[in-house]
Each structure stands twice: as C-alpha cells, then as structure tokens.
C-alpha cells in the first residue's frame, strides 16, 4: 500500500556493481534478522522481490476468485440475516483482494499485469476455490474450515518482513475472524437441527475437510520455497506446523458440533499432545492444481466474463474523466 507512484528505486539501486551486491545482500539479511521491516524503496534482492510478487498476487487472486463459490449462494441464503452477512463477507473478500493487489504493486508490477496473468491462466489462485458449493451447508463449512485455515496461514504473515504485505495482512486478519465465526454459527444451527440438516452439515464437513488441510501446501519435505522464505521472514512457520495446529484446534470444534471428521486415523495422541491424522492424498491436490478440479474452468470463465462485461464501464469512466479534465483545462 504505498505505491509504485513512489516507484523510482533508491539511488543505491542504480549503480550497483556485482561486487557490491554481496554487501547489499548481507546488509539486507542483517536488517531482516533484526526484525527491521523492508519498505518499497529499500534495496532488496531480486529473488525476494519476485517471491513476494508471486505470493502476494496469488493471494490477491485467491480473494477475488474466492468470491465466486460463495456469491453463488447470496440469492438463496435461507434468511435475510444470512443474506446480509454473506453479502458483507463476499464484499470483504473483494476488499482483501484490493489491499493485496496494492501491496503487490509496490514491488513494481502493475494491477493490469496481475489481472492479465490471472485471466491467461499464468497465475495461480488457491485451489480450494475449485471445489463446488452444492448446498447451504457448504457456506457454513467454508467459513469454518476454509476461512479458519486461511486465518491460521495469515496471522504469521502480519509479522512478515515486507511492510506493505504485513500491513495489508493486519487489516485482513482483523476482518476475517467474523468470516470464520459466521461459518461456525451456520454449522451450529444445522447440526442442532433436523436429521436432514445434520446430514447436510456432516456431508459438507466430509467435502471440505481434506481440501482445507491441503490449503497449507505440500508437506515440508516437498516444499521448495519454505527454507528461503523462512530465512527472509516472509514465512514464519512451515506448512506442516500450521496444518498440525489447524487440526489441533479444529478437531474439538467438530466434536462440539457432534460431527465426525472424515479420517479414520484421527485420534488425540497423549504423548505428543497433538492430534494424529491420516495421510493426505496429494495426487488429488496435484490434479486440482493442474486445472482438473471440479470447477477450475467454470471459475476462470466467470472471471473472464465479468472482466469482459465490465470493459465498457471502465472505458466509459475513463472517457468521462478525460472529458472533465479537458473541460477544466479549457475553462
């Protein structure tokens, strides 16, 4: 959120010989180690910049695409209260996308470039949004599990070494906690309802449990970026640490709802004081990532359609502003 309007880099970036780079990198790492924040105009290694652009833009795209599975239920929410809440939540997701795009822009990529990367399929978004929401209970499960997992991922990013990303994340986390609670409330209502409502809640949990665990990314052994990202303090905990923490806090919540987590191996381990859970089917994750999830094509078609259908509005707004400017200049 400070801007590429301030985009000209500091002078020191302009005349850097190869010999100086090592010194700059050492100074950069020392600042990161000392928990100093890096700001847009500060010198940073190219790889740090590119890692952040990839991560922040991917995160922004996820917020934007994430509006689709839930927006699907706005017209069919069971009560006016639920509808008002869902609209507010979906609007928040749009806002979160905006905060994050702004943060990414401070690194020297433009908004239009990012949108183009999303629409051309060159940029990724969280694969969780490629699953369908066939019933109202899915909206509850998304708030409870998907937003719950997202919050767990995002809270440590509030302390990320890159200032604009950390600040965007603080704002987002503050807003997300209502998302998770409204989801849990939907699940509470359904699970204390009629047998049919209980079944809906259980089936939604069955659908979303494993995809939610996959949101934390590949296991530590497979994760290419973790070590470097932790050294740069972009990441504070490994994927497996966060996933374990999620299972530990979520399993008792499912117990409270009287719902059964779809994992036969799940049990509390007295010696480790953690829940043990079964192996994740990573082939499914890879398959969804490759574009073969249940809704990949539909999501991208929706994004593309709204981009195309909004074009005349963007053009008209630009033309109007231009006309106003010309008139003001002439006056």
């Amino acid at each position: 959120m400070y801007t590429q309007g301030l985009d000209s880099l500091g002078k020191e970036a302009l005349h850097v010989s190869a010999a100086d780079t090592a010194a700059l990198e050492a100074r950069f790492q020392a600042r990161v180690d000392a928990d100093d924040k890096i700001e847009p105009k500060d010198w940073m290694p190219d790889a740090y910049r590119h890692t952040l652009i990839r991560q922040i833009s991917q995160h922004a795209h996820s917020e934007i695409v994430g509006m689709l599975p839930e927006g699907n239920w706005i017209t069919r929410a069971p009560t006016l209260r639920r509808k008002a809440v869902l609209i507010a939540k979906v609007q928040d997701e749009g806002g979160h996308g905006m905060y994050l795009y702004s943060a990414a822009e401070t690194l020297g990529i433009s908004r239009d470039q990012m949108v183009a990367q999303l629409l051309s399929g060159n940029a990724r978004y969280s694969s969780i949004f490629n699953y369908p929401t066939p019933t109202w209970a899915d909206i509850g499960a998304i708030g409870w599990l998907v937003d719950g997992a997202a919050i767990m991922n995002q809270i440590p990013i509030c302390r990320c070494s890159y200032g604009p990303y950390a600040r965007a994340m603080v704002r987002i986390c503050r807003e997300e906690s209502f998302h998770q609670r409204q989801g849990f409330e939907i699940m509470m209502t359904l699970s204390s309802g009629t047998p049919e409502q209980r079944r809906m809640a259980q089936e939604a949990l069955n659908r979303w449990w494993w995809p939610a665990l996959m949101m934390f990314g590949p296991s530590d052994a497979e994760s290419k970026h973790t070590a470097q990202s932790m050294r740069w303090k972009i990441k504070r905990f490994t994927n497996d640490e966060l996933r374990q923490h999620f299972v530990d806090v979520t399993a008792p919540q499912a117990g409270f709802l009287g719902l059964k987590i779809p994992d036969r191996e799940l049990r509390f381990d007295e010696t480790t004081q953690h829940y043990h859970f079964g192996a994740i089917d990573w082939s499914e994750f890879q398959n969804v990532l490759k574009g073969n999830g249940p809704c990949n094509r539909e999501r991208m078609e929706s994004r593309q359609r709204s981009h195309d259908e909004g074009r005349w509005v963007r053009e008209a707004a630009s033309a109007y502003a231009e006309k106003q400017r010309t008139r003001a200049d002439a006056a």
């Binding site: 905060y99 908004r111 600040r167 630009s318 502003a321």
Partner: peptide, 8 residues
C-alpha cells in the same frame, strides 16, 4: 491507509 485505482 493504502492506495487504490480510480479514474479521478
């Protein structure tokens, strides 16, 4: 608080 894009 942040930044955004707008025509004017």
């Amino acid at each position: 608080v942040g930044s955004l894009h707008a025509v004017d």
